[in-house]
Design a protein around this nucleic acid. Structure first.
Lengths: 196, 196
DNA sequence: CTAACAATAGACTGACTGGTCTACTTTTGA
DNA sequence: TCAAAAGTAGACCAGTCAGTCTATTGTTAG
């Protein structure tokens, strides 16, 4: 399995279609037709649709990890400023996809975590890794005195991830980033505050 | 269309199966087999699967409305106490379904709002009605001096709905109500506070 | 050169999909 | 009483699904 070009093309197309229509509504044939790959190749690289789905999640998580590291791990900026930039990037992405795709991991979490434990585990691991980025960033903020140490960083991180995923869901159904803006506003105004 | 017993049975079974497996993964034949209704009856009451799905949403929204009115509209209790009870009921429901179902509207919002504008509109209307219950409850809290008037009630309501839906999603993928608890804790500690 | 293996290619399969059709039974209202 | 309408019943249809199969082409190592 040296030639990864075809495999990558399948995963890329799969991520796009699954992001748009969900996992169950995305047929393998549709993926193949979209990227012009024959079925023989698909089952050469993936043992089943589920294995393909997991590979799509894996690839997405890896790529997103790099983004998170860049945005939230950029220690040249104040920690809360990094968070602001992360939220801004999320809003921008939401507009770019016409409020249709949102967050692939969130989408699949809703759709599949009741359907398959394999998927649920994979998606939960991604969420937990994301949470760790938030924890690190919030701890930076606490060390710098930007953020009160009254609230544990890990609880805050869970709060932020939940709220942000929910805001993305609302943005999708409303076709507007307003819920994402309102979440960010109140979060910074009431939750991410320093000791007076 | 006077005999609603068969129709109700179809909708009830549909809500259950769609809640468990999602809309796309729930076949009409599975619904029919589960509740022992022949296909002829199904298409006597519903013109298509989409119409059926909308009826399921409608029925669920109506039933949930009654619950919200009871919990959040119970003016014999302090407004913030009503909110606490609402969250507690949500957590209980999450445990009852083994963290598998979560919120039907949230699930379908993720799955279908990118797939069909008809569904998206229907689901968004439900969300907006829910938000109005929160707004009314928060305004009660502000009038009673339980809650600062510094933040507009409608922004807060949007914040709470987003956060709660996101917490439910995390609870599903984590198979634990912990994210819901963490959301509630920080919400009451930092956001739903009175003027000092 | 050639044998082994990676990869491409797509016809094909059985199961299942949403939806249609006709036949039959029950209920209703005049 | 009886005809029209409501509702039940399930065989059936074309299309699609994930997955299999065999054949062929590219590549690589001995």
């Amino acid at each position: 399995m040296k030639n990864t070009a075809t495999r990558d093309k399948l995963i890329e197309t799969g991520a796009e279609l699954i992001g748009q229509h969900g996992y169950n509504a995305t047929g393998i044939n549709a993926v193949l037709k979209t990227c012009g790959v024959p079925k023989g190749s698909f089952y050469h690289y993936f043992s089943s649709k589920e294995a393909f789905g997991l590979a799509v999640i894996d690839q997405f998580a890896t790529a997103y990890d790099a983004q998170l590291a860049e945005l939230l791990g950029d220690t040249t900026l104040p920690a809360l400023e990094r968070l602001r930039r992360y939220f801004a990037a999320g809003r921008e992405h939401m507009c770019d996809c016409n409020h249709a795709t949102g967050c692939l991991i969130g989408n699949l979490g809703q759709e599949l975590s009741g359907q398959s434990d394999t998927f649920r585990d994979a998606l939960d691991r991604v969420f937990q890794r994301w949470e760790q980025y938030f924890v690190a960033c919030l701890q930076d903020a606490q060390k710098a005195g930007e953020l009160s140490t009254a609230l544990p960083a890990d609880n805050l991180a869970s709060f932020i991830l939940s709220g942000w995923e929910g805001a993305i869901l609302r943005a999708k159904t409303l076709k507007s980033v307003e819920p994402m803006e309102q979440f960010e506003t109140i979060l910074f105004q009431q939750v991410l505050v320093s000791d007076d």
